Simulated assay, not measured.
Amino acid sequence: MKYLKLTATGCVAEYGVARALPEGAIAAPDSFDPAMAEQLYRTAGGDWVERPLCPVPVVVSGGIQISGCPEGVRAEVYDLDGTEHLASLTPDAAGLIAASLPEAGRYRIEVEGPEPLRPVAVEITVEIGVEIGVLP
């Protein structure tokens, strides 16, 4: 029997096969694709839907902005050239995260949030404080 163990928010914590349904598990739907386990969650109504992505960073003059962040979202900023962690950022009361990137270089911004949000990461190249490329 295929089974799933879900988190409190309906995200898949474990997928497996057992002779009997393990404690705390539910039977996996026949159509359930284990390759999609990290991308789906079960709503309170029992429907399987795609987990939404965290808000994506947008390059603005001199830095990045991430808008529409719900409570619990956190952004980590890394300098790829200097191989260092630059900042851990949380949204303000309006749900906005902003970071200045005044020096030329390559940066990675990782955004994580509470379930069911899925994390996102982007890499950007800045030349004299002006963005010249964004890679998903």
Rank of each mutant, 00 (worst) to 15 (best):
K2G: 00
K2A: 08
Y3M: 02
Y3N: 06
Y3H: 05
L4N: 01
L4W: 01
L4E: 02
L6C: 04
T7Y: 01
A8G: 06
A13W: 08
A13G: 11
E14K: 14
Y15M: 07
Y15D: 04
A18T: 09
A20F: 14
A20Y: 13
A20S: 15
P22L: 07
E23T: 11
A25R: 12
I26P: 01
A27Y: 10
A27K: 14
A28I: 07
P29I: 12
S31T: 15
F32A: 09
F32V: 07
F32P: 06
F32I: 09
F32G: 09
P34I: 06
M36E: 15
M36Y: 05
A37D: 10
E38M: 10
Q39P: 00
Q39D: 11
R42Y: 04
T43M: 06
G45D: 15
D47K: 13
D47H: 11
D47C: 04
L53F: 10
L53Y: 11
C54R: 04
C54E: 02
C54K: 06
P55A: 02
P55V: 01
V58H: 11
V58F: 08
V60C: 05
S61W: 01
S61N: 10
S61D: 12
G62F: 05
I64D: 05
I66E: 04
I66H: 03
S67H: 10
S67T: 15
G68L: 00
P70C: 08
E71A: 15
E71W: 05
E71V: 13
G72D: 06
V73F: 03
V73R: 01
V73G: 03
V73M: 07
R74S: 13
A75L: 04
A75H: 10
A75Q: 08
V77C: 03
Y78E: 12
D79N: 14
L80A: 11
D81W: 08
G82S: 05
E84R: 12
E84G: 09
H85A: 08
H85E: 09
H85P: 00
L86F: 05
L86I: 11
A87W: 02
A87C: 07
A87L: 06
S88D: 14
L89T: 00
L89R: 04
P91L: 06
P91Y: 03
P91S: 04
D92G: 03
A94K: 13
A94W: 07
G95H: 01
L96D: 12
L96K: 10
I97D: 02
S100T: 06
S100L: 06
E103H: 09
E103W: 11
A104M: 01
R106V: 00
I109V: 15
I109F: 02
E110Y: 09
E110I: 10
V111F: 08
P114N: 10
P114M: 10
L117S: 01
L117W: 02
R118E: 05
R118Y: 01
P119S: 13
P119Y: 01
V120S: 08
V120M: 07
A121K: 06
V122E: 12
I124T: 14
I124G: 10
T125K: 11
T125F: 08
V126T: 03
G129N: 09
V130G: 07
V130L: 14
V130E: 15
G133C: 11
P136A: 13
P136V: 08
